[in-house]
């Protein structure tokens, strides 16, 4: 991303304005022409730097009150293949590899599941567990109990 790309991201991080010509508003904020904003966003989408442009749903408000972060300890040499398989199931909104900190935190594969009930969320966890099979050495599900702060992407400094 170059400097102009970053200005576009900064101008859209609170969301696109709900006016008939939102990219014109972004252009004015970023000091670019609307054509340049749209062309750059096209390129960032094609390159994958922008994942998608659209309505970002709030799972909690839509009734998905149970957010479970299921964490798994799997062998390092298998985590990438298994992570790709889990992502392809489409059951989790996020699937990440993160560093292990044994012994207290041995988990290297993170999957986020959402349910309208705790049982529904746990059902998705069990489905994932079946796919992971005997590769799992340890696992836990951490449900979120309270959101203290949530804002869009913010870049500071």
């Amino acid at each position: 991303m170059d400097e102009a790309d970053r200005r576009i991201v900064a101008a859209t991080q609170d969301g696109l304005p709900l006016v008939p010509r939102p990219y014109h508003a972004v252009a004015a904020a970023a000091g670019l022409t609307p054509e340049e904003v749209m062309a750059r966003m096209h390129r960032l989408l094609a390159e994958g730097a922008i994942r998608r442009i659209g309505a970002v749903p709030n799972h909690y408000a839509l009734g998905y009150r149970f957010n479970g972060m299921a964490v798994w300890e799997v062998a390092e040499e298998r985590v990438d293949a298994l992570g790709a398989r889990i992502a392809a199931l489409g059951l989790s909104s996020h699937c990440y590899r993160r560093p292990r900190h044994p012994p207290d935190w041995p988990y290297n594969l993170f999957t986020m599941v959402h349910g309208r009930t705790r049982e529904e969320a746990l059902h998705w966890v069990e489905t994932i567990a079946v796919v992971l099979g005997e590769a799992v050495r340890a696992r836990e599900v951490l449900f979120s109990s309270r959101i203290l702060k949530k804002t869009g992407l913010r870049l500071v400094g």
């Binding site: 991201v9 859209t12 991080q13 609170d14 969301g15 696109l16 709900l18 939102p22 966003m41 960032l44 730097a49 922008i50 994942r51 998608r52 442009i53 659209g54 309505a55 970002v56 749903p57 709030n58 949530k150 869009g152 992407l153």
Partner: peptide, 8 residues
């Protein structure tokens, strides 16, 4: 929805 926007 939390916003209409780009997911980076």
């Amino acid at each position: 929805i939390s916003r209409i926007g780009a997911v980076v």
